[in-house]
Nucleic acid binder design. Structure first.
Lengths: 212, 212, 212, 212
DNA sequence: AATGAATGAGCGTTCATTCAT
DNA sequence: CATGAATGAACGCTCATTCAT
């Protein structure tokens, strides 16, 4: 898929990158604290370290900021997932590693994940679709890991479902932190979810069976 | 927990109830369509069938409307979950029924579920906690069903985790509809999730094992 | 032609009329001084005697104010022209009276005429057409007076041209005041223009010939 | 009258002239399309073929551009009027030629004439007076032609009035095009106006009397 | 108890102008 | 001389909230 471009009146590509990174950094913090709608463009400009006029040299609308933020989060998540998932030698343990890395990464980016999940709907339709596509790509990565790791075959639907479950269980660690993070450490959470997963997949040679 | 009260200047309790129901009905539709922030108080008043002045006789702030709406949705969800879960005779099949009913109900109230999950963060802190408590109550219900249905014992943590997983898999049917509902019918989704769940719980006598 | 309606959220028709008159009065003065573009909506609100919020209860856009102003000016001009032109007993002297009244009226409404002539182009297309139609109506009135007053026949084109000439000579008294009003009093201007007109129409029994 | 100078920080006179001509050319088209206020300095710079920074090396304010444009238009109009009016051998037919040329020229420069008449009011006071002076000069030229062409004497006031009428009838062809140019071709318009003029001046040996 | 006109703080956005490079 | 990134005052407009009737 084509990278969606946000128009700007600035010509220096490096400067665009630099300023937009400032912007994203500033905006994520604000969105996390008060949400997209309650954050003003002036606050974004200030948090980014430049004036409101300069902000608008690099975007057209406030929604562009949100898009830039979402896009950057996905990009970073995807990048890290790709690193974590070594597609060469796939085995049960590589599935385990992939899931672990994914959960780890969600934990690192908790705030970003929350921002994304609460604000994508504020994006204009086309940007929403673009972002959904990215999410589909990520679920797809999980699907492939599962498929390649299992010593037996599962139907596509089952794989899809399991991948989505894992994906959402990751996000859940962020957006249900108020209920989960008082009962579980990250490690516990990861190991318990993995244990359930492997139980489900009948791959429990490596983990204690839920019920003996 | 005490029912959270929204102050009003009106004395007649019946009238308050009536007007607030009009309000919730009108507002929920608007929130579904355009979200809380994009909906104006005038629109809410109009959709409720009275004037902006009257609206403000029954609430103090716009956020009160959101709270009323969220509260009402939770109430309805909880009510239906309670009906679905027959706590008397608990068995494996009653767990199955409970999960089925829960997924069914989420499907019925898709829009409402989305409204809730996208807008709670706009609630003032105290209302957020109130609503979170309700959600905890609901997860608790699931926990009890699981505990009472299983022919063996699981640790509290495992039960909590499984309950949360089920809970979120329900919500996922709503807020990931764009990815799930093109691949699955509701029935398929329910049965496949149940199948995975029972596999995980080693209760697969009733369902085909994922892998023989 | 249908009267173009400017939407408002106010229900009380009398109040609308009252507030809009305040608005028009305030706005004409400002437009006259600094032009439409240099006048801010806050200034209009202030000059109208109410807040910016109230201003926008009675209009949708700043351009609506301009339209209201233009419409009101035309309405007043047209009204006075209609009074001045007694269509019953048309004669040479009634033509004279009509022109005199028209010039008189332009003098009374100098500022308004200037506002109109400098700002109509700032109106949105549809409002421009509406206003042009009104102007055509007014030229038409002059055409009829000419036609009915003359003791002989003129071609339609000649009548159109003469009517337009008179019409513009009127306006010219306003928008070329800096060149005309230092050489002529209004009476002089009227009588001299009438004299030239009657010379042109060969109706000079009542006026001294330009050249004896 | 002294030529009004627009300050610049550039030394090279030829370059100034060159750049300003680029500027006028670009700006006039933009002003035609969208008016002075709706045109941005960036657009002017772009249309002129250089950067916004460079634009501001050759002017101090946006209004300077407008002045340069108006000045240039007046200059061109005046120049052509001077060519058209041969002051040597003045006769009735030279009056006719002068008027014809003037109308012709207005037709050629319709858009420019409209720009001028709609935007002069946006000029600063001193520039307005400068431009008004130019217009007085032009009316003066018409006055002299009339005076020198007539076989009899007219009072100064009569001459002034007739000159202004002619002048405005020319402009009218531009700014009332929506009403005139659907009924008249330019030739028709010229001949009919000339016919009325000569009737008025009792110079109708060459044209059919309006009424025999 | 119901109405709806009034308010004004505050929003997103623009654009003339400056000035370091 | 030329560039274009940076600035921020100012704009048009919205909408939650109040309060006189």
């Amino acid at each position: 898929m084509e990278k969606k471009k946000v128009p700007t009146s600035i010509k220096d590509q490096q400067l665009i990158e630099k300023r937009r990174n400032q912007m994203i950094k500033g905006a994520v913090n604000l969105f996390k604290e008060k949400g997209f709608h309650r954050t003003t463009t002036r606050e974004i400009a200030k948090a980014s370290g430049f004036s409101i006029g300069t902000l608008y040299e690099y975007i057209r609308t406030k929604e562009d900021v949100l898009f830039l933020v979402c896009d950057s989060i996905y990009e970073r998540v995807k990048e890290r997932m790709e690193q974590a998932i070594d597609m060469e030698k796939q085995s049960i343990s590589s599935l385990k590693n992939a899931v672990r890395s994914y959960f780890q990464l969600i934990d690192d980016m908790q705030d970003e994940v929350i921002v994304m999940y609460q604000e994508v709907k504020s994006l204009p339709k086309d940007a929403q679709e673009y972002v959904m596509q990215k999410e589909k790509d990520m679920v797809h990565m999980l699907e492939r890991v599962i498929q390649n790791s299992l010593p037996y075959d599962l139907s596509d639907k089952e794989i899809t479902l399991i991948a989505n479950n894992i994906f959402v269980q990751g996000q859940m660690w962020s957006f249900r932190r108020w209920i989960l993070q008082k009962d579980f450490t990250l490690e516990e959470y990861i190991e318990k979810q993995l244990s359930l997963l492997f139980q489900m997949l009948n791959l429990d040679e490596h983990v204690t069976k839920i019920k003996g």
